[in-house]
Design a protein around this nucleic acid. Structure first.
Lengths: 238, 238
DNA sequence: TTGCGCGTGTGATCACCATCACCGACACAT
DNA sequence: ATGTGTCGGTGATGGTGATCACACGCGCAA
């Protein structure tokens, strides 16, 4: 089965490769089948908007493949990116549950597939399957936790260098080698990094220069190499 | 029935004056009775800590009377207040549901009464009463929304004056007179206001001076009078 | 080739606000 | 009356990061 943008389509949640790990992905057979009935699937190109901040919630998106960024903007055009999402994440859940406008904009950064569940169908589904409602509550409280991480970063970590170091570390917690170095493929522009840590493009550029000079990191093509993890951790809690 | 600190004790959720409005306060008779069985109640003085950031979640607190502030701090001692809670609010819900440490510290600002529900009892209760689990999910998503408001304020509203104006407006949305003026009792210190908007005590003091000079507000004793709401709104979105 | 858009590097400048310092007002206890 | 603690006002100063400006390299299309 082929699709636009050169992707393979996953047409069944029951055989989805990420199904073990995430919300809606490891349900009872009965609930899983019901879920399959009420969802539809689509493939989105880079730059596609799944939903936009302020829109009434139409439903939730289960991101299967690809990457998306969640962001919120002020009227004057300043933007902050609050989360980068990958396969398995559920987008739009809060807006749907509370029936308030989407609090963020979800834009595809890499093409990918997402399942869509309309709001009414989901709420009905949750009423029928009370055990899933509790899992939804758990997911929401996890979202809340990450939101609080964001609040702490924005409100307590003062300097851009501290936030930058924090971000670098968050990228490499999973991929650390035994010698303390680690590598990450760098897919974000400086502008996007600036929107994550709440500063300007120029400052990010200078931070890269500064950290390179201090031997904290290096760049091999588009691959970021962390050279001195301990020094970064010291900056974070300084 | 009398209690310490000159407060009347409410000994039954079924007759609580705020019961109509909030989570856990308008349940079916059966659920309500069950809730009464698993809760305990206590009265707290000013300054009492209901729970502290980082502690394992013991349970949730239903604040009946009094006021509490929720805050989070960095190792270096910088603190931000993320929410002011009043009667009817549920504190600690996220930590209990997700079984992670409390993400904030809850401290009583005015003496008051709170009901306590141990974690295990609550989870058991939610399993027995699936309809309440969905209401918990709704509450969590509301919490999430207010967290996002905070993120926007911290990340997008740049200058202290903008955040200050925003805070003033948030205090007076409920109490606006027809002539555009409004009054609020001011119970916070400058220090606390500074911790809400993420600045210093001195800056808050200067902001008060500046806004008074610009006829945006006035102080009658400890009562804050908003004199020019439109100008404040202009500052916010400037 | 030329032009264009985009991402990046970097210098110069300047407003803003955190910080330090100090003072006065007030409440409260002894 | 005298201390003590908390709170609020305000001046001086310095660092920092946003802003503006410009140049470079690259991919891509006409």
């Amino acid at each position: 089965m082929r699709a636009p943008y050169g992707l393979n389509i996953l047409d069944n949640c029951l055989t989805c490769p990420v199904r073990e790990e995430h919300l809606f992905c490891n349900l009872s057979v009965h609930a899983g089948q019901r879920l399959n009935e009420i969802k539809s699937t689509a493939v989105y190109p880079k730059g596609a908007m799944l939903f936009i901040e302020g829109q009434q919630p139409r439903g939730v998106f289960l991101l299967c493949t690809g990457k998306a960024k969640l962001s919120t903007s002020s009227r004057e055009g300043k933007t902050i990116i609050t989360k980068l999402s990958e396969g398995g994440d559920v987008l739009g859940l809060n807006a749907v549950i509370s029936n308030r406008p989407y609090e963020v904009t979800a834009e595809m950064m890499e093409p990918g597939q997402a399942n869509f569940i309309p709001r009414d169908s989901l709420l009905q589904f949750l009423k029928e399957h009370g055990e899933v409602a509790l899992r939804v509550a758990e997911q929401l409280s996890r979202n809340y936790y990450t939101a609080y991480e964001e609040i702490r970063t924005l409100g307590l970590a003062t300097s851009p260098s501290e936030k930058f170091a924090k971000l670098l570390l968050s990228w490499t917690t999973k991929t650390t080698q035994t010698d303390g170095s680690s590598q990450v493929k760098l897919t974000l522009t400086h502008e996007e990094i600036a929107e994550i840590i709440g500063t300007t493009r120029e400052t990010v550029s200078r931070l890269f220069s500064e950290f390179k000079k201090k031997q904290l990191l290096a760049l091999k093509g588009s691959t970021l190499v962390i050279r001195n993890r301990l020094a970064l951790e010291k900056i974070v809690q300084s």
